[in-house]
Amino acid sequence: MTQGVSAAEAAPPPGDNGWPPIWPAIRRWVEALDRVSMVVIVLAMAAMTLMVSLQVFWRYVLSSSIDSADEVSRLFFVWVIFLAIPHGIKYAVHVGIDLLVMNLSPRNKERLFRLVCVASAVLMAAIFWAAWVATLDKWQELMPTLPITAGIYYVAVLICAAHSFIHLVLHAWLGSRIWEGRLS
């Protein structure tokens, strides 16, 4: 999250050595989850690029066309974007207005950060429910040129909400410092 404060000024985390004893176990699980999601994102991103480029090659060089190129590349795109949103939370990519927050004391800043995470988690829970209903509703419909349910577009939103929820709850519980890594 954007207002993630630097390690030095953050409120001291709970527990003896900083974190509650259960944190390492949770961390292992969440990291495994993140890795699976990352692999899917990388594959979907590569497939999307490949699909769009192949369509150009097919059309221009082979004078033919891949019937499902449009919908399949959009499907990969949707999966890339929604699956990457939770990683954006982890790596503090989603931007916000920090004008007022900057003037708070580190302790209050951290408190506000956790509060904002709780609100964001509530939002994600609501989106999860919405995406669940939407997925069920859509399941009977097929993709335009493939015999696959069109519900899988909504599955990306579903995963996004659930995965984001986990990260936001962890932030709300343990503060802004749990992931030290940066994206670049």
Partner: peptide
Amino acid sequence: CLFRAAVTASMVGA
């Protein structure tokens, strides 16, 4: 590279 591009794009996507 693929992962970073995706996460940066997800900010606009969100």
